[in-house]
Amino acid sequence: MSRSGWITVAACALVLLALDVLLPRVLNPYYATIVIRIGIAVIAAVSLQLVNGFTGQFSIGHAGFMAVGAYVSAAFSVYVGAGWLEAFAAVLPGPLARVAYYPMALAAGGVAAAVAGLVVGIPALRLRGDYLAIATLGFAEVIRIAILNVDAVGGARGFSVAAADHPGADLRFEGFGTVYAVALVTIVVISRLVYSSGGLSFRAVREDEVAAASIGVPATRVKVEAFVVASFFAGVAGALFAHSEGYVHTNSFAFLRSFELVVFVVLGGLGSITGAVLAAAVLTAAPELLRGLGEWRMVLYSLLLIVTMLVRPQGLLGTRELGFDWLRRRLG
């Protein structure tokens, strides 16, 4: 990365830290929650875009990996991390202690989800099309029901991300600097992955798996790679979800959530990172913005989806990117 690239990254980090500290003080918590949810939806949608949009594998089980990330990081925080955070908080001011601690909790969730992605991906990605879709859906449900049977994370009662024996450790966060920093990292990593020369193999597999294999692209390996990277970021999104909500329940990761993520990706345009970002942001905010309509709000929401797909069957942005040339020049 060039010098100006590093300066941009450092500037972004500073702005985000400032936002993290300042915005919760001035912004109404209701709006803050929605802004955080948008950030998390962006991370999950962009990561799914790698699998569904760029590698052409139709996965409808992404919420399962969010669940793994959410529960593993929550359990890590409650049973292990709370003590560490308390130790950090003793020597550092609150926000900094959390900035020091969160990467560990997020990594725990991300790595666990990546491992789950590897275990699921190796057998599942030998399937194609509809069969793969059904297999991913099945795995996501298996994960969810397995979690439901683990008593240490609350089972059917849900799991509160709070450690009663460490009163000095506030595991929840309200600032969205953390979320948006992770979102930025996700976007940069995945765009550099798919728009690099090595990333051509993802798109080669998407366009024609047999042709790609004939010129030496290891198709299954490429697919598993995409799946593992996507699972990692889904796990991180899940970890952020658990820590911002403060309470996780397996109902939040049922197949409807997976489906919602697929809608983000398809509506944004299969093969467009900025499209996924745009769709995730608009569709996460929409149910709240439409509250004024009372019981008609979900009807309008659904109509919005139908009309968009009729008018733009290729998604909002198709396979194009919005203003990415500029960002890539800066970071490259």
């Binding site: 918590p29 209701y30 929650t33 929605i34 949810r37 849900g158 979800f241 909500e245 309470y247 329940h249 109902n251 939040s252 149910p287 709240e288 509250r291």
Partner: peptide, 11 residues
């Protein structure tokens, strides 16, 4: 929806 219960309460 579990998390929407939280948003509605906040709203």
């Amino acid at each position: 929806i579990t998390e929407e219960a939280r948003t509605t309460a906040q709203k």
